[in-house]
Computed example of a mutant assay.
Amino acid sequence: MSTKISKWPAGTPMWVDLSVDDVEAAKSFYTKLFGWDYLTGEGDYLLAHIGGHAVAGLGPKLDPAQPSAWTTYLASDNVDATAELIKAAGGQLLVPPFDVMDSGRMAVAADSVGAAFGIWQAGNHIGAERFNEHGSLCWNELHTHDYASARAFYAEVFGFAYHDVDGEDMVYSTCLRATDGREVAGMHYDTELPETMPDYWLTWFASDDVAATACQAEQLGASLLMPVSSTPFGRMAIVEGLQGDVFGVIAVAPANS
Rank of each mutant, 00 (worst) to 15 (best):
G244N: 15
Q121S: 01
R105F: 04
D146H: 15
A25Q: 14
V55P: 06
R130F: 02
P198Y: 01
A185N: 10
T213C: 08
L242G: 14
D21S: 12
S229A: 15
A222K: 15
S149K: 15
F247V: 09
F153H: 07
D77R: 07
L220W: 01
A115C: 03
N140W: 09
G167L: 09
Y172L: 04
V252S: 13
S103N: 08
P227Y: 02
P64G: 01
T31G: 02
E183P: 15
Y147R: 12
H143Y: 11
A155G: 15
A26W: 01
D169K: 13
V246T: 09
M187E: 14
F158Q: 03
P254C: 01
A211M: 02
T213R: 03
V20Q: 02
T3Q: 10
N78H: 11
I250T: 08
A26L: 01
S112P: 08
A253C: 14
M170L: 14
L93N: 07
I86S: 06
H143W: 05
I86F: 08
A251M: 08
G135Y: 05
L224A: 06
E24P: 09
A214V: 00
P227S: 07
Q66S: 07
M170G: 03
E24S: 14
C215R: 15
Y73N: 06
Y38M: 06
V16Q: 06
S207T: 02
F34Q: 09
E195S: 13
D209Y: 00
E240L: 04
L93I: 06
T82W: 07
S207K: 03
P13E: 06
V95K: 12
A81E: 12
A253L: 15
W201G: 02
W204H: 10
A88V: 11
T3D: 07
V100P: 03
Q121D: 03
H49V: 01
I86C: 06
E168Y: 12
V23M: 10
M14W: 05
P13C: 11
E240Y: 08
G167S: 11
M170W: 07
D146M: 12
L224Q: 07
F153P: 14
H188N: 15
A222E: 13
E156N: 14
S68V: 05
E168H: 13
